[in-house]
Design a protein around this nucleic acid. Sequence first.
DNA 1: CCATCTTTGTGCACGCGTTCACAAAGACAT
DNA 2: ATGTCTTTGTGAACGCGTGCACAAAGATGG
Lengths: 255, 255
Amino acid sequence: MATGRTHRPATRSRGIPEATVARLPLYLRALTALSERSVPTVSSEELATAAGVNSAKLRKDFSYLGSYGTRGVGYDVEYLVYQISRELGLTQDWPVAIVGIGNLGAALANYGGFASRGFRVAALIDADPAMAGTPVAGIAVQHTDDLDRIISDNGVSIGVITTPPGAAQQVCDRLVAAGVTSILNFAPTVLSVPEGVDVRKVDLSIELQILAFHEQRKAGEDAPPEGDDPEAPPMRATPASRKGPDGDMPAVMPA
Amino acid sequence: MATGRTHRPATRSRGIPEATVARLPLYLRALTALSERSVPTVSSEELATAAGVNSAKLRKDFSYLGSYGTRGVGYDVEYLVYQISRELGLTQDWPVAIVGIGNLGAALANYGGFASRGFRVAALIDADPAMAGTPVAGIAVQHTDDLDRIISDNGVSIGVITTPPGAAQQVCDRLVAAGVTSILNFAPTVLSVPEGVDVRKVDLSIELQILAFHEQRKAGEDAPPEGDDPEAPPMRATPASRKGPDGDMPAVMPA
DNA sequence: CCATCTTTGTGCACGCGTTCACAAAGACAT
DNA sequence: ATGTCTTTGTGAACGCGTGCACAAAGATGG
Ligand SMILES: NC(=O)c1ccc[n+]([C@@H]2O[C@H](COP(=O)([O-])OP(=O)(O)OC[C@H]3O[C@@H](n4cnc5c(N)ncnc54)[C@H](O)[C@@H]3O)[C@@H](O)[C@H]2O)c1
Ligand SMILES: NC(=O)c1ccc[n+]([C@@H]2O[C@H](COP(=O)([O-])OP(=O)(O)OC[C@H]3O[C@@H](n4cnc5c(N)ncnc54)[C@H](O)[C@@H]3O)[C@@H](O)[C@H]2O)c1
């Protein structure tokens, strides 16, 4: 899950629930597919199925945007596409900067799925001097030294961090100082940002661990009585018991 | 956000809230960092700060696991690392298969952060015959034809899908048929799976769109009276108004 | 113009998750 | 042993999100 900072209580204007905002892109995707097939209208039931949600939830979500449906008929696809796009701010162009052009950063830069939704990769930034000038996905990588200027010149307000975890906070600070107010963080790091800056994180490792939890539970349901009793925890580690030489996966289970 | 299917109401055993499960990896990461610095104990306050959550929430989360803290002192770092690891099923090895070795799939394969937490990339699978045999991250890519056998032979129960969206459902079906019961999906597709299979999705595009929404809201707060009135929606599109030649970003706003 | 039928929009109840606030537990000093 | 001080574990209140169920809206046909 991604974490949205700045939980401003929707002071002004009609406040759209955060959960609804998170689903709007889902609806938009389903609607775009329908639009490409030239389907003129959809019922909440059909669209909900396509988006993988409950139809009542979908209708309630749309009700926050206004009354855009026609009873007895459904929703006009093209009209709804426009309304949701406008609500999400997708009618305008969003220049995005990616910082840390390694495995992941390069993959993102090469990904064509952004441009189709108003996001434009405006700059690629890396600290490695050897990379400066190298074109990735048709864009020359620029050096971190110029980060401030690059952000300003391109009017970037959304930054993507794909640096190693150790560099993430520093990069984040520099981005914020340069004027970035929204950050998508792929580094497994808790970023601290000033009020008014939104941070969302994508954490692969966490997703896998959640899957592992459920996977283990499924497996354990079939075979409750196992060899090593999982209910008997090892003795509490004495504070003296240090970790292994590597520091990863510490050898607990002492005495 | 990722979507967990199979909302079994925690029939048996003490049910740990889903929200808590999602935070355990966060705590584990913070604890591991402390462990590497040989810190013997932490208070809920310190650990909560490190993990970026509320201390009361953290204590309540831990209370679902049992009483592992010591009042007046805090939690034993090593002991807690072990308890959380065990709860998440990280004490055992999880062979993972990645299907679709393109930009993203290759990046994931090259990522070292999985192995450190009990996840092992056991197989790379792609439909492109030209890729078969090619080593990526030291592992030879195998062809989709052998998917079934590969999954079985390696005892893979967790699959990662990084194919184009059009192939995702088909790949998903094949993985499930082969015995996979947990899927991490990067393709922007709503996967339908049988009961008992967990699906989590990571959707870059959605994350960016959520950021754009808040970004637009921030910008709109400063300048309410603007050129084109954002409150006046265009006339409803007639069903006849088709989309542009490309099909993306339809030219709404007719007459 | 009226009847019927489909589908929206929403009031309401419920359950989950978050947060506060505090009693109790235990470490530590004297 | 006793008192003090720190920190946990949790009861309780609250707020948000979800889903049911239905009245009202409007299309459509006669
Ligand atoms: N690759 C994956 O699949 C994956 C999965 C999950 C998480 N992550 C996380 O994403 C991040 C990037 O992963 P990766 O595999 O691409 O790593 P990588 O090492 O391939 O790339 C990191 C890049 O960041 C650059 N960099 C380092 N310090 C920098 C700085 N201060 N400013 C700007 N650039 C800097 C490096 O030069 C390098 O090009 C890591 O934090 C990793 O934990 C990656
Ligand atoms: N690259 C990114 O940064 C990014 C970001 C967001 C989402 N995604 C999504 O991730 C997926 C992969 O993206 P990508 O950029 O790596 O694409 P890609 O085209 O580089 O890679 C796709 C790979 O899947 C393989 N493939 C195709 N059909 C297959 C099948 N039926 N079975 C097995 N393999 C098959 C192809 O041979 C190719 O190697 C896409 O769905 C994309 O929308 C990617």
